[in-house]
């Protein structure tokens, strides 16, 4: 693998590089959130949040294929969240918390083996699950525990409609499973693309492989 000139491999340059990657990929994530996110929200498609979460995870996993520095996913997430905070708009705390949490989950999933297939899948699955969980959590904070009673009552009504005990719960489990699978798969695509990008970057002889953090 081609390396940068020795003079560039200083601790200070590694730090510059770490923050430069955080800035560039944080900016890319912010741009995607603004452009693609706005487009999907305008279309009023269901599960837009889950899709954006999976896309964010895929981007982070892709980046870690050619820049595996520990902590970089979290740094990218914090930058992207703060870019969101500086953008004009209404209530921004929710999306900010969402982006930082997703980045934290990806960082957690990639901590042991940042380039492994399983790590990537887990990262995507966790992010999509979080996006669903955050929605329920936000509603619980906003409306109180009554909303959970309401969801449980709705599940019981589904049981009655389908005429089978626990049918509602099983339906929920299947939905969550499908979502996790889709999130994981999208992140695997991200990993694949990241590896292809790593090959191209190696051909362009860019310095790589810094794992200082």
């Amino acid at each position: 693998m081609p390396r940068a000139p020795a003079s560039l491999h200083t601790k200070s340059f590694d730090r510059e590089r770490f923050w430069a990657y955080a800035a560039a990929f944080g900016s890319l994530w912010g741009t995607l959130e603004v452009t693609l996110g706005a487009f999907l929200h305008t279309l009023r498609l269901p599960l837009t949040g889950a899709f954006l979460a999976a896309m964010g995870a895929a981007l982070l996993v892709a980046m870690r294929q050619f820049y595996p520095a520990r902590g970089s996913s979290l740094a990218v997430g914090v930058i992207a969240a703060l870019l969101k905070s500086l953008s004009p708009g209404g209530v921004i705390l929710g999306p900010m918390i969402g982006i930082i949490s997703e980045a934290f989950l990806v960082e957690l999933a990639l901590v042991v083996a940042p380039r492994a297939l399983l790590s990537a899948f887990v990262a995507g699955g966790l992010c999509v699950l979080w996006s669903v969980f955050q929605k329920v959590l936000t509603q619980t904070v906003l409306y109180g525990g009554t909303i959970l009673d309401l969801y449980l009552a709705a599940l019981k009504r589904v049981d009655q409609l389908l005429g089978s005990e626990n049918a509602g719960a099983w339906l929920l489990v299947v939905c969550i499973g499908v979502l996790t699978l889709l999130g994981g798969s999208l992140t695997l695509v991200g990993r694949h693309l990241g590896r292809k990008a790593a090959v191209e970057l190696r051909q362009q002889a860019l310095p790589q492989g810094s794992t200082h953090a």
């Binding site: 560039l8 510059e16 430069a20 800035a23 560039a24 892709a62 292809k196 990008a197 860019l206």
Partner: peptide
């Protein structure tokens, strides 16, 4: 789509390397 995504990742990584060389 894969070609487009890879190009985007590469361009962003190159941008990051340039930023790192310039100082943040």
């Amino acid at each position: 789509f894969p070609t487009l995504a890879v190009q985007l990742l590469v361009e962003t990584a190159v941008l990051a390397e340039q930023c790192a060389r310039m100082g943040s």
